[in-house]
């Protein structure tokens, strides 16, 4: 950045950087979501509805660098892109509710557990919250508690995938911090 730049151009440059980062993250999150859908994870996980949650890497990374508003924009954008690709809105409403719930829990934990939690703990809780949110959306549709039958299995699996997602976010944050685009946004968590 030029030293002679005045305040307004500095803030507009920051805004531009933010917009670019959100756009890139949303695109990567959508691609990760598509790749995940192609992987035959259902085959070996043996639990219906189990997912790796790769898109969570981008949401958590975004929460590390940017504010909660920007991260929420990312979550909504990703849901919109996925809806446009698949063309079925009602199906993705459920996954969006899961993603929203997971986002709220992760943001809350970053605020509350400042310094006491690492990225791994936060991503584990985000993964578990995603499952809880999705099943709750299903419960609201079907009005039967039988839906929660698979929750414990999904929770245990969510711990395992959450740990790996957390490790991945750690590496992504460390690498992105070295880029000049991310210079003004110091990551809150390491």
């Amino acid at each position: 950045m030029r030293l002679s730049a005045n305040d307004s151009s500095v803030s507009s440059s920051l805004k531009l950087r933010k917009t670019v980062i959100i756009a890139i993250f949303a695109a990567v999150a959508a691609v990760l979501g598509l790749v995940e859908a192609m992987l035959p994870t259902q085959m070996f996980m043996m639990i219906p509805g189990a997912k790796l949650g790769l898109a969570n890497i981008m949401v958590l990374t975004c929460l590390c660098f940017l504010s909660w508003r920007d991260s929420l924009a990312l979550v909504i954008l990703k849901a919109l892109i996925m809806t446009l690709i698949y063309g079925a809105f009602s199906a993705f409403l459920f996954s969006f509710l899961g993603a929203l719930f997971s986002f709220i829990v992760m943001y809350g934990l970053i605020r509350v557990g400042r310094g006491r939690l690492s990225l791994i703990g936060i991503s584990v809780m985000g993964g578990v919250a995603h499952n809880v949110g999705q099943l709750t959306a299903a419960y609201l549709v079907f009005q039967t508690t039988k839906i929660y039958y698979y929750l414990p299995a999904l929770m245990l699996l969510g711990i395992v995938t959450g740990i790996f997602i957390g490790i991945a976010v750690k590496y992504v944050v460390a690498s992105l911090s070295k880029l000049s685009l991310f210079e003004p946004f110091a990551p809150e968590l390491q």
Partner: peptide, 9 residues
């Protein structure tokens, strides 16, 4: 991993 993570898990 911190102690908080282990407690949460």
């Amino acid at each position: 991993m911190k102690r908080g993570d282990v407690v949460l898990i």
